[in-house]
Simulated scan of single mutants.
Amino acid sequence: MIKLLIIFIKKLKVFLSKKLSHYNVTLPYAITLVLALLIGVFGINIFVELTEVLSTETLSNYDTKITSAVLSHRSTSLTKYFTFITHVGDVYGYLVVLILSAIISLVVFKRWKYMVQITLVLFLSALSNVVLKRVINRARPDLEHLVAVETLSYPSGHAMSAMAFYGFLIYLFYRFKMNRYIKIGTILVLAFLILSIGVSRIYLGVHYPSDILGGFIAGAIWVVFCIVLFNLIEVFRSDPKIPNNI
């Protein structure tokens, strides 16, 4: 990602310096940030499109069929598993992972920036989820709830936070220089965890499948935007032509 950004910004610098009589060294970065925002807007548009069909009969049929298929597999062992998994995707679960991330960032990588980035992604996801729930105002499924819930249904906060938080962790592990098999294994475990958290909310009767899909889309938007933003900041700070006082 950083290499692609550097190449893009270099080409943008050359283009702007030729086209503009008064060229500002920070302009390519501003344009790149705007483009990142446009990517975010495109993702939000997909999210809105899904939101607009929440009340349609077609989506309702899909929700019913998928929910019935998931609930048909209810058992004592699966209930224990999905109850545990859904707690992993809750506040206390993230606190444990954040503490572990802080230890790894400080001890292994000796840098706090990864911890700050992970925390920011989770915060943005959680904050926007609260706003989206209030705006869309969709009630929970009229099913037996195997866990207690208090907020509204769409988009799923668990699915959104899982995609944003663990999705960003996947990106970080992809960038880390480490044993190939450990890296691949960790990424697969995190991907399975994201999927499990989403399925757990359907299994426990507290979300429609469309809630999960909406949460995954919204969470993915934050992952992509934050990856571009953090890399852009890194490239910006390393640019020798940028004055230190900016």
Results as ranks from 00 to 15, higher is better:
F176G: 00
W222C: 00
S200N: 09
K177S: 12
L232F: 08
V199A: 04
F225D: 07
L232I: 12
R201F: 05
V189S: 08
F168I: 08
F173A: 04
V206D: 04
V206K: 02
G214N: 07
L213I: 15
D211N: 05
N179C: 05
F225E: 00
G214E: 06
L213Q: 03
V228W: 15
G185C: 01
N179T: 10
F216L: 14
E234L: 11
C226H: 11
F173V: 15
L188M: 14
A218M: 13
I217A: 01
Y181F: 14
Y208P: 00
Y171S: 05
R201W: 07
V228F: 15
S196R: 06
V199M: 08
I212A: 00
F168M: 11
V235H: 04
Y208S: 00
V224N: 05
I233E: 11
G214M: 04
M178Y: 05
I187P: 04
N179D: 15
V206C: 00
T186F: 12
I212N: 00
F173Q: 03
L232T: 13
G219D: 05
S210P: 02
V228M: 15
I182T: 13
L193F: 10
L188Y: 11
F176W: 14
K183T: 03
G205R: 04
I202N: 00
P209N: 01
N179V: 10
I217N: 01
F192H: 11
F173H: 11
